[in-house]
Design a protein around this nucleic acid. Structure first.
Length: 492
RNA sequence: GCUCCGAUAGUGUAGUCCGGCCAAGCAUACCGGCCUUUCAAGCCGGCGACUCGGGUCCAAAUCCCGGUCGGAGCACCA
């Protein structure tokens, strides 16, 4: 059989081609699509977007692009204690850099009157009541499946108290608005949940004008309806919230959007808590939101990840309800696929050691910028007789004295003690070690790595003219900023 | 503890709804080879998986029950 195949491939190579079908991952169709879709991204403005957010952003964007319709960025800022005013600016920036097309931006703190009105309707319909119990007492009632004394207040009493809350006549914690569900619901977190409360902190956008804020479950339900959401895809962690929000849809006879909850992704060892990143920045552990040790979108892009990489990674991962682990291995490999063909090859000599090549003539060296793309040209050097070159300490120390080694695209040398001797034999070495080098007039260069360390060394002169994503040969891919004499390590 | 999800190779996934074409596809990693003056890319080949136990059925990764393991949530965060 093998013989026959070989014969076929010689005479009819195209016959064998058919067998291999490249399988590309495609997101499953959304259920219940009638015409265009309306979907949303709903981050809270506690900081810029990070790796964990990119999934929801890209998945929603993909579906809106597939079916047509609109993608709403809804900034969920109903908890004044957890807001970074800068986030209102950073989040749209991040989305744009990711290639996510947002059609409409909605800020919840500008819609408080809308929530109040919807609340009045539900209070009038006896679906909500103002509770003045202490937090702990209230909790106890629920665990015991009992009604608190305020649950039976009349709608008029509740409306009156609600207005007092709006007017700022009640202090934080003095009262809250509860949505009636079912006191004996088996899932305790679905029993009468909080719809409004008076937070202790002042809201950075609306300031003193408002002191009563809905909880996310209330504002999300109202907005999902009012904004005409057709499909909501979000993490499994939101499942209980979906059940909670369902009560509001039911009381109002609203049609619910189509929900899908995807499995949770775990990011082993990753710092993805915005609050912790923020604390680190404040303390000075990180230089800012784009510190390369952080996994924010801006830091990752600065390191040299392409926005296409995020997209392909999340599409490949699919939309499933299973939990999964984020794989840097795959993520980096995808990114390499995007950057390699355009990345010029550059010699970066880390921890350089200067050596003289004894007995060498003037040597002209021409090195292609890309081994498989001659159109990218080459860099040319003349290493004059008697001048020095740099190689990495690691390479140099790994070569035993007396050993021949190839300086890539320059010449063969023999290590003799602490110096190198121009080899008699300059034929291409098939088996030997090939190392990279940099000429004497190279510049200092350093590479910042995501683990916080910095590799210092020298970069070949032509390397100082190439900005952006390059491949430092035998080192790794680097997003280079030669004017600053440094770059950020992307990955191997 | 309670409520709710889930379980395919080292990793990420396809297939599971509507049982047979799945002695399980793809990617990545790894191993071997080709190419190559990079330990890159590319090409070829290889390794490697249906959580366990029972049931239904001519037939189960796919349906049912149970165990185990893992995950999410648990009430004024979103």
């Amino acid at each position: 059989m093998a013989v026959i195949q070989r014969e076929i491939s010689i005479s009819f190579p195209e016959l064998l081609k058919v067998e291999k079908k490249e399988q590309k991952h495609i997101l499953p169709d959304l259920e219940d699509v009638k015409g265009k879709v309306v979907m949303r991204l709903a981050p809270s403005p506690s900081g810029p977007l990070h790796l964990g957010h990119t999934r929801m952003a890209i998945l929603n964007d993909e579906y809106v692009k597939r079916y047509g319709g609109s993608l709403i960025l809804r900034i969920e800022d109903t908890n004044p204690s957890n807001i970074d005013p800068e986030a209102y600016r950073m989040i749209p920036e991040d989305l744009e850099m990711l290639g996510v097309k947002v059609h409409n931006i909605v800020i919840q703190s500008s819609r408080l009157e809308i929530y109040y009105n919807e609340a009045r309707k539900l209070i009038s319909g006896s679906h909500m009541y103002v509770c003045r119990c202490d937090k702990e007492v209230e909790k106890k009632y629920k665990l015991e499946m009992k009604a608190c004394p305020h649950r039976d207040q009349t709608a008029e009493e509740n409306l009156d108290l609600f207005q007092k809350m709006i007017n700022g006549e009640l202090a934080s914690g003095a009262a809250s608005v509860m949505l009636k569900t079912s006191l004996n619901h088996p899932n305790p977190s679905l029993r009468d949940w909080i719809a409004f409360r008076i937070p202790p902190a002042e809201h950075p956008l609306v300031g003193r004008k408002y002191s009563l804020f809905p909880t996310m479950n209330f504002s999300v339900a109202v907005d999902d309806h009012l904004l005409g959401l057709t499909h909501v895809i979000r993490g499994m962690d939101q499942l209980n919230n979906t059940y909670r929000q369902k009560f509001i849809f039911d009381y109002n006879n609203w049609k619910t959007p189509f929900y899908f909850h995807y499995g949770m992704i775990s990011y082993p060892g990753a710092l993805l808590k915005t609050s912790l990143m923020k604390r680190g920045i404040k303390k000075g552990d990180f230089s800012g939101w784009d510190d390369v040790r952080l996994l924010t979108v801006r830091a990752l892009l600065k390191r040299g990840y392409r926005n296409e990489t995020f997209r392909k990674y999340w599409i490949d991962s699919g939309l499933r309800d299973v939990d999964a682990t984020f794989s840097w291995e795959i993520f980096n490999s995808i990114n390499k696929g995007f950057i390699d063909s355009g990345a010029k090859r550059i010699f970066f000599v880390k921890d350089p050691v200067k050596i003289t090549i004894k007995d060498a003539p003037d040597i002209a060296s021409s090195i292609p910028f890309h081994p498989s793309d001659p159109k990218m040209g080459s860099r040319n050097y003349l290493v004059k007789k008697g001048s020095d070159i740099y190689v990495t300490t690691e390479d140099w120390n790994s070569i035993p004295s007396g050993e021949n080694v190839r300086l890539k695209d320059l010449c063969n040398v023999t290590k003799t003690g602490n110096s190198a001797k121009y080899s008699i034999d300059q034929e291409p070495m098939k088996r030997g070690k090939i190392i990279h080098w940099a000429p004497e007039d190279s510049s200092e260069f350093s590479v910042e790595k995501p683990d916080g360390t910095i590799d210092k060394g020298v970069i070949e002169p032509e390397g100082t003219k190439v900005a952006g994503e390059v491949q430092m040969e035998r080192y790794g891919y680097v997003n280079s900023f030669p004017k600053k004499g440094m770059g950020y390590y992307t990955h191997r």
